[in-house]
Design a protein around this nucleic acid. Structure first.
Length: 880
RNA sequence: GGGCGGUUAGCUCAGUUGGUAGAGCACCGGCUUUACACGCCGGCUGUCACAGGUUCGAAUCCUGUACCGCCCACCA
């Protein structure tokens, strides 16, 4: 034992215990165990990604729950896995290729896919190793990947089933298009950023030579695709022009003026150009008025042949040229600054181009309606609750989901088109040939990544087969995730779970805040304020990081991760380590763990700490039941450090020096309380607790790891309010004497005397019995208890709730300082007294406040009066 | 345009059925007390953003204001 280092060294400990847990199958779910089941699925991180601080939070909190439930005796399945992350992964590999001077087209589809698989196999180990480093107690034997054969089968079943139900359709429609990624995006993959732009006022001359109309636009380059001008039917300025025709500048096309109530008369000129091919509103308007659609921007963001002189130009270059031309032709009436939100590709930041193309969509209305219903019925609860409203808001205004992506990496769409008869075949299995005998070609697009991850809670359990796992572990209990993927993922899991798995995928959705830097700023690479959990774990260990995240995870709040807080909790880990070291160094070699004697045979300190640790068990369990990781961590921190280490260990030190029954009792209680604290702390700080637990003396029936040891429950017989009150009194006396010593500059090594005038005989007896504790902790060589004391000169007299403490200190008493101190206290007491008197004097309080509160106020006033009398008595003595 | 969150000690934050405020860090003073200086002991620190309202009583409930932040959004 003596070789234990003074500072906990996580670097030599953490990895060893994780391997051990894995080797004994500590995290493996046991469906046959007969225990009640508890399940969660881990939000699958990007298979080629690296653990970031958000993951650290989203893995630590459920891990605490998983470990806690396991210790409570549940058969816990926490299922891990990774996501193929279609567009993100493809982009990474394309970048690698670009560095070699190649594009994916140089390789061709098959070779490219092989290349991505190679990258996936190579980097899969990175993220999973990082999860082990953090301590995720997941069941690796059931790890899944969204492109596994089983999950691929699930995706096909999903697609075909939705298609047959008429919930998937293919249509030519306006979609968000990223010209860089060359793929369609869903609404969610578009990020709107406020941008300072311009509003251009352009005149479209009348066909007959009239003045025509002036339209306002932020995107002049799209005017080349205009097929109408629209005005509000109630706009007196324009109403008479409905049906007139104007001439589109540059191109010369004649455009009709249509009326549509969508047009806001108050914006711009009240007349709007209509470009059905490049604006979602205009697309809808185009359909309402049967307008033609002219695409002027292609899939690379270049102007098409329809753009006349601008054909082949980049869309932004065309804008500049066009503005110049309009100005030269005298058609540009005005340019105004204009602030507006522009859509950008979530993955690459390119400005998204709305354009018309043929895509697959999920008809979302019926699915959303069900997903709303199950939440309304309380089958899924959001924590904190305000997210429920956000969820409803979004689900109510949801649009059809574009699920096809023009990528190569992902689940290929199970639709085939016949060259012969033009039929579309949608099938789970690859069809050989069309019924007409024609050759079938599979759709070249892949599915949105979220189309497969939306099945995660049940595809990972074997769906579409009706497996025993699915029956046992679905639905899961808790889904914990950051708010940014509520819509991407949580909502879709609910929709698809209800549709396919017979019910909601989880009962509680815990939405975490964002981990921010210490100044509350969002972490970003460009700001350089990113906290790397791997670096942090390397420096202070996974336990310290975990405990910090847990302690700071207040529901609904972002987490400003500060160096200071992390340091503080690293020190807590070290405190835990050293208190444990102390214990191991003092209990000696025990053949087995000693039993704690019945509480009524124990001295005050032991009864007090047993009562405390029993209460702590309840508090931690209650907090975890409500997912209040912060409260649980706070209580554990405070109890371990400021009650167990600061007081209890100090109290029992002398007893440990003895031999015989006194020492044996102290050892037994010390081990018992410490062992309970180790187990209570284990879900939060698994590594250091295992390291310590393995060195503790065993009791018959203890398993191979603390991970599978029972979580401490409260022991009703240990709860002892009297012991807690007595100890508080004792602590007050000790603290008072210490304060006097500190104020008067008494050297810590100097033993002094003190007297307490406790009038109550029973109390005095209690103090007498425990005088040794006070002498030791306050550095006294003499301590007396009397019912009355006549203080001599050079004695500091301090007032407690029920008694005085006298500390004779010849030569060092500063009478003036003492008088001022007491006067200050008298003033404070007087202030509080008068506040309570005022309260009691008001008619309403006595009449309407609960009797308990009134009694408390009266009792407090009496107490204050007593205290004031004592203080003033002391003051009189000092002056006299 | 819609919705949400925040404003409490120098800093970062707790404060859940309304009874006049807590923690960590920082700071000040003293300590090589044989678990720990990543420590021990003692100490200092608040018109709980502002203005109204409800109530015997409000940091806590209601209304409004200000500032900060976030999410969603097909007014060009």
């Amino acid at each position: 034992m003596s070789e234990l280092p003074k500072v906990f060294d996580h670097t030599t400990v953490d990895a060893r215990w994780y391997s051990y847990w894995e080797s004994i199958g500590a995290f493996t779910a046991l469906p046959e165990s007969g225990k009640p089941a508890f399940s969660m699925v881990l939000p699958p991180p990007n298979v080629t990604g690296s653990l970031h601080i958000g993951h650290a939070l989203n893995h630590t909190l459920p891990d605490i729950i998983a470990r806690w439930k396991r210790m409570l005796g549940y058969d816990v399945l926490w299922l891990p896995g990774t996501d193929h992350a279609g567009i993100a992964t493809q982009n990474v590999v394309e970048k690698q290729l670009a560095a070699e001077g190649k594009t994916r087209h140089d390789l061709g589809r098959e070779a490219f896919e092989a290349r991505v698989w190679e990258w996936v196999r190579q980097s899969h180990g990175t993220i999973t190793a990082q999860m082990r480093q953090l301590g995720d107690s997941v069941d690796w034997s059931r790890e899944r990947f969204t492109l596994d054969p089983g999950l691929t089968r699930a995706v096909r079943r999903e697609f075909v089933s939705l298609y047959r139900d008429g919930l998937i359709y293919r249509d030519r429609y306006i979609v968000n298009w990223c010209p860089r990624c060359r793929t369609a995006l869903s609404d969610l993959e578009v990020q709107h950023r406020d941008t300072a732009g311009k509003l251009y006022y352009v005149r479209y001359p009348g066909v007959g030579g009239g003045p025509g109309v002036v339209v306002a636009t932020t995107r002049p380059e799209t005017m080349l695709g205009d097929t109408a001008v629209a005005v509000n039917p109630d706009d007196d300025r324009y109403r008479h022009m409905a049906g007139d025709r104007v001439r589109l500048p540059v191109i010369g096309r004649e455009l009709p003026i249509v009326t549509d109530s969508f047009v806001d008369p108050a914006f711009g000129t009240g007349a709007v150009k209509v470009t059905p091919a490049h604006d979602p509103n205009d697309f809808a308007m185009g359909r309402r008025h049967s307008l033609p659609s002219v695409s002027v921007i292609d899939e690379d963001g270049l102007m098409t042949a329809e753009a006349g002189p601008y054909a082949g130009q980049d869309r932004f270059k065309a804008r500049r040229g066009l503005v110049q031309q309009l100005e030269a032709e005298g058609l540009l009436e005005k340019v105004a600054d204009h602030q507006h939100a522009i859509g950008h590709c979530e993955r690459c930041g390119t400005v998204v181009e709305p354009l018309v193309s043929t895509q697959w969509f999920v008809k979302i209305g019926p699915l959303a309606a069900e997903a709303i219903r199950v939440v309304e019925e309380g089958k899924v609860t959001f924590l904190p609750d305000n997210w429920t409203k956000t969820y409803f808001e979004w689900m109510t205004n949801i649009h059809d989901w574009c699920i096809s992506r023009q990528l190569w990496w992902g689940h290929r769409i199970p639709a085939w088109y016949c060259d012969g008869c033009g039929t579309t075949v949608v099938s789970e299995d690859d069809p050989d040939r069309c019924a007409c005998g024609g050759v079938l070609r599979q759709d070249t697009d892949v599915l949105d990544t979220w189309f497969s991850s939306g099945l995660w809670p049940f595809s990972t359990l074997g769906w579409p087969d009706r497996t025993a796992e699915l029956a046992r572990y679905y639905p899961t209990t808790l889904m914990l995730t950051a708010f940014d993927i509520i819509f991407f993922w949580v909502a879709r899991m609910i929709m698809l779970g209800v549709k396919f798995a017979g019910g909601v995928p989880f009962h509680t959705v815990y939405i975490t805040g964002l981990v921010r830097d210490e100044r509350g700023q969002k972490m970003s690479k460009s700001k350089g304020n990113v906290v790397d959990p791997l670096a942090v774990m390397g420096e202070i260990g996974a336990d310290a990081l975990r405990f910090t995240l847990a302690a700071m995870a207040s529901p609904g709040m972002d987490i400003p991760l500060s160096e200071g807080r992390m340091t503080g909790y690293r020190q807590f880990i070290n405190k835990f380590w050293n208190a444990s070291r102390f214990l191991l160094m003092n209990i000696g070699d025990l053949p087995s763990r000693p039993d704690v004697p019945p509480a009524h045979d124990l001295g005050l300190a032991h009864r007090w700490i047993l009562s405390g640790v029993s209460r702590l068990s309840t508090e931690v369990s209650d907090a975890l039941t409500q997912y209040r990781f912060d409260l649980a961590a706070d209580r554990l921190y405070h109890f371990f450090w400021h009650e167990f280490a600061d007081w209890y260990i100090e109290l029992v030190k002398p007893e440990l020096q003895q031999t015989g029954p006194v020492r044996e009792t102290a050892v037994a209680v010390l081990i018992e309380v410490h062992d309970r604290l180790v187990r209570l702390l284990h879900p939060f700080i698994p590594f250091v607790t295992e390291e310590v637990w393995q060195r503790l003396p065993r009791r018959a029936g203890d398993g191979p790891t603390v991970t599978l040891a029972p979580f401490p429950a409260k022991v009703a017989g240990w709860l002892d309010a009297q012991a807690e009150r007595d100890m508080e009194y004792l602590q007050q006396i000790v603290t008072t004497i210490r304060t006097v010593r500190s104020e008067r500059g008494v050297a810590p090594s100097r033993r002094i005397a003190a007297v307490v005038d406790e009038a109550d005989a029973a109390m005095r007896a209690m103090l007498e019995r425990n005088a040794g504790y006070i002498r030791q902790l306050a550095g006294l060589n003499r301590l007396e208890f009397r019912s009355e004391v006549a203080p001599g000169p050079d004695t500091v007299k301090r007032v407690l709730e029920h008694a005085h403490v006298f500390v004779p200190l010849a030569g060092v008493v500063d009478h003036q300082a003492e008088i001022e101190k007491i006067q200050k206290e008298v003033a404070a007491v007087a202030k509080e007294s008068s506040a309570i008197e005022q309260k009691l004097a008001s008619q309403g309080f006595v009449e309407r406040a609960p009797a308990r509160v009134v009694d408390e106020a009266r009792a407090r006033l009496a107490q204050l009066g007593e205290r004031r009398a004592k203080l003033e008595g002391t003051l009189a003595d000092m002056r006299g």
